[in-house]
Amino acid sequence: MYQRRRIRILIGILLFVALLLITLDVRGGGDGVLDRLRGTATGVLQPVQDGFSTLVRPLGTATDGVRELFSLRSDNAELRERVEDLEERRRVVADLERENRELQGLLDLEERLQFETVAARTVALAPSSFEWTITIDVGSNDGVARDMPVIAGPGLVGRVIQVTPSAARVLLAIDPNFSAASRAARTGEIGSISGRGSDPMLLQPLEPGADIQRGDEIVTSSFAGGVFPGGIPIGVVADEGDTTARLTRSITVLPYVDFTRLHHVLVVLSAPVEPVPPLEGTPGIPFEPPPISPDQDDTDDMDDTDDTDEAPEDPAPPEDLGNADDGSSP
């Protein structure tokens, strides 16, 4: 009898503590005491996880090697690697050519793609089946900060969501909580792309009738002050979606990165692109709204606006806003 009572009391206490933790964490948002506790746990366990994964990784690699030897896949793998390399070059060249036309030679393309990065190894994956994150072996001591983009050879991997001095946790691009500004490399049409777990990613273009076709490459965009530098390949359009009688259009995108085989990644240390301030608020640039003539109707106003050449001396337009001009050129 005494034992049963004791067990009931223990059940009550432990379940109460668990519910209390849930309440505190949900109410504390993302920067509470419990979140810092998680960061500390990650920092403490990271060296051990690193050691274990270093011990196990050769086993997996050796098994893969033997398997490939017996199935005579080595030649095939080499050829595929070459094809992938050539495909990647083709994609990069196509995107660079489009940007070159858009920016009319104002930006040096090579300089745009030379990110300052730090290399990292994946040391742990999320223990839950419901979140797509990885832990990497670089942290704030290496210059890593929250929201920095993470890339691998084929393209975008995700962004940093938690940093400790020697480790960081990365939210993968396929996690449903992930979203990023993006654009089509061929036409420059912009939109928002988000993850859907094990399903292909979802792209929602800003303009539902945007010219985006199956096979188009999708890259990141720095539009609207997004955290990612523009031009990082994300994936390829698998289904262009229904364009008729819809206010929004959903396009499925297959990511380039194989998220099940992430061993080495690069963290882009470049600061996120600052949002462009509104013209009215810019000191030193006088801004006056255009006069509205009361004796002209709306149609005339629009025509006048189109024909006038009195545009203010704008600073260079943001990268993606230049797409509209480019789209009208042959």
């Binding site: 933790l21 998680r38 909580n177």
Partner: peptide, 22 residues
Amino acid sequence: ADLLVAQAPLGSATLVLTSIGG
């Protein structure tokens, strides 16, 4: 387990595993 995940509310796995154990 709760300390090793980044997004689910801390305490969720505690609640489930304590219940399973009991």
